[in-house]
Nucleic acid binder design. Structure first.
Lengths: 120, 120
DNA sequence: TTATCATCTCAATGATTCTTGAATTGTTGA
DNA sequence: TCAACAATTCAAGAATCATTGAGATGATAA
């Protein structure tokens, strides 16, 4: 994740419809959702509008797509999301580790630490 | 941190000059930097341009300002930054804690955990 | 093959955002 | 008070972005 990628990701996330799409897809998990169902969830946005935002998100690397029958299934790109957090926090910590502690605490309460799952 | 605040923060961070300002101020630490010095660091951007971006960042809650003599000193709003991460990760984790682990690992390597510095 | 469904592409319009330059506010020192 | 400095505000123009509606593409089933 470099500055350019981070800028693209932030731009993608700074639009209401797109932020909601990302949240929805993260909740939907790895199996994802077809474009039409996503559109229905966005108070019935038009298909061209959905297509515009979905391809914007895909270019930013925040979602991935695959065709399945006549539907196109979108899912959240989890690695980009955590890469973005990593980028933000790397900025945060330059010489000031105390910034990270609240974020760390937030993460801890969110994802109960899986005991020794990965040992770096 | 609600959706509206997050959208504002992401919009603020999606502009090259502003993202650089935030990174610069985070590195500068709590004492901050005067607007003029920030402008010099941004390849000598004009004062009105700096003012535009700095007030944008301040409205988004990402920086704070105080007057000191004839200078106005800007510093990073660290609580908003970690609030934003918290918001992002709360989204991330809805039912899928495995998303958080890479981000958590990134944080751990970034800020070596201060042993029992704060006990909540 | 034909009809239908799901989605995408394209061009036009309207809305936001960024930059610039000139004028203004507030602070300090002579 | 006056000159100089630091930063802000404002209006105008250029650039970018989002929405709409019409038409095109690709896949399935009869």
């Amino acid at each position: 994740m470099n500055e350019k990628q981070a800028l693209n990701a932030f731009a993608a996330l700074s639009q209401e419809t797109r932020l909601r799409i990302v949240r929805l897809l993260v909740t939907a998990g790895p199996e994802g959702m077809p474009a039409g169902a996503i559109g229905d969830a966005m108070d019935g946005a038009s298909s061209s509008r959905m297509s515009f935002h979905l391809s914007h998100l895909e270019q930013a690397g925040l979602v991935e797509s695959r065709r399945e029958g006549r539907s196109i299934i979108y899912s959240a790109a989890l690695t980009t999301l955590s890469g973005l957090v990593e980028f933000l926090m790397r900025d945060c910590c330059q010489g000031h580790p105390e910034v990270c502690n609240p974020a760390m605490a937030a993460l801890s309460s969110c994802c109960e630490p899986t005991k020794e799952t990965s040992h770096v």
